[in-house]
């Protein structure tokens, strides 16, 4: 009996102090540093810039040194200008291209999402077209460098696809042509990006027609790479030669291509971050030799 009161106190305290154990946990799981959703205008510029910078970096590190165009500052072993090339050099592009491929896939998906949100927002189609062209750009680099490579299941790690299958180079090329066809169709009617979003496109400032020209010019370049595949139909029952002729001559109006210098696809290194020339920083990029 004499313990009764303290026990009641204790019980009350226990109940009061005992936490409602998972209160607010779902709110706490919300990451304040990241976003669950991304619209295409947020994804495009950093992805394109990254691919370009990585390409230039490697061009400087390998091509320029091998061509004796310039020489590394370091004086110890392991220098490419001395033809000392390690197997690890080959993974750099593989590793960086596939990472950005995931973002380009989301540019395409995000374009569709914009149209879902606002049916009249046809700039979504512009992004879809740009997304396709960028995917083809990166994919062609991958397959031209590595041959058969993961493609149809590539960059889908988000769906927990951790071991993507390899596709043959032939299938990859065939599908790239399909993507370029789709991009050309989309960009025929797609508007330019709204003024507020021109900075999302560091290449053309959102001009749809220019992207269309880029896509078709790239189409020609990829067809040229298959120029010895004369008999095999590669695009919609057409052979490479037939398709080339169609774009360059017979249906040139449907497939506008680059004709003047201002059509060229480039990012201007203004010297203002993030558009600073990778050559200006790539030597001390790692801070070491």
């Amino acid at each position: 009996m004499k313990f009764k009161k303290p026990f009641i106190y204790a019980f009350c305290l226990l109940t009061a102090a005992s936490p409602a154990c998972t209160d607010d946990f779902m709110d706490l799981a919300q990451n304040p540093n990241a976003s669950e959703f991304a619209l295409p205008q947020t994804l495009l510029a950093p992805a394109i810039t990254d691919v370009l910078k990585k390409n230039m970096n490697r061009a400087q590190r390998i091509n320029n040194e091998l061509m004796q165009d310039h020489i590394n500052m370091g004086d110890v072993e392991g220098k490419i200008f001395r033809y000392d090339i390690r197997s690890s050099e080959s993974t750099y592009m593989w590793n960086n291209w596939y990472i950005q491929l995931a973002n380009f896939k989301d540019v395409y998906k995000g374009g569709a999402e914009r149209i879902r949100i606002t049916a009249s927002d046809l700039a979504g189609n512009t992004y879809k077209g740009i997304g396709l062209i960028c995917q083809v750009w990166v994919t062609s680099l991958i397959t031209d460098m590595y041959g058969d490579a993961p493609y149809s299941e590539a960059s889908l790690g988000k769906d927990r696809l951790f071991l993507p299958k390899f596709d043959t180079q032939r299938d990859i090329y065939a599908d790239m042509f399909q993507k370029l066809e789709e991009a050309n169709t989309l960009l025929t009617t797609a508007p330019n990006l709204p003024a507020a979003e021109t900075s999302a496109d560091p290449v053309y400032g959102g001009v749809a027609a220019n992207w269309r020209k880029l896509g078709n010019s790239m189409y020609l370049r990829l067809l040229l790479r298959l120029s010895n595949k004369t008999s095999e139909p590669m695009v919609n029952d057409k052979t490479v030669v037939e398709k080339f002729k169609e774009i360059a001559e017979t249906r040139a109006a449907t497939y506008p291509i680059m004709t003047v210098n201002t059509d060229g696809a480039r990012i201007n290194w203004t010297g203002t971050a993030p558009y600073d020339n990778p050559f200006a920083t790539c030597a001390p990029l790692t801070g070491t030799q």
């Binding site: 990472i99 988000k158 993507p164």
Partner: peptide, 10 residues
């Protein structure tokens, strides 16, 4: 992970 997943790691 292999980068062909589009990821560095999981």
């Amino acid at each position: 992970l292999d980068r062909s997943t589009g990821l560095n790691a999981a």
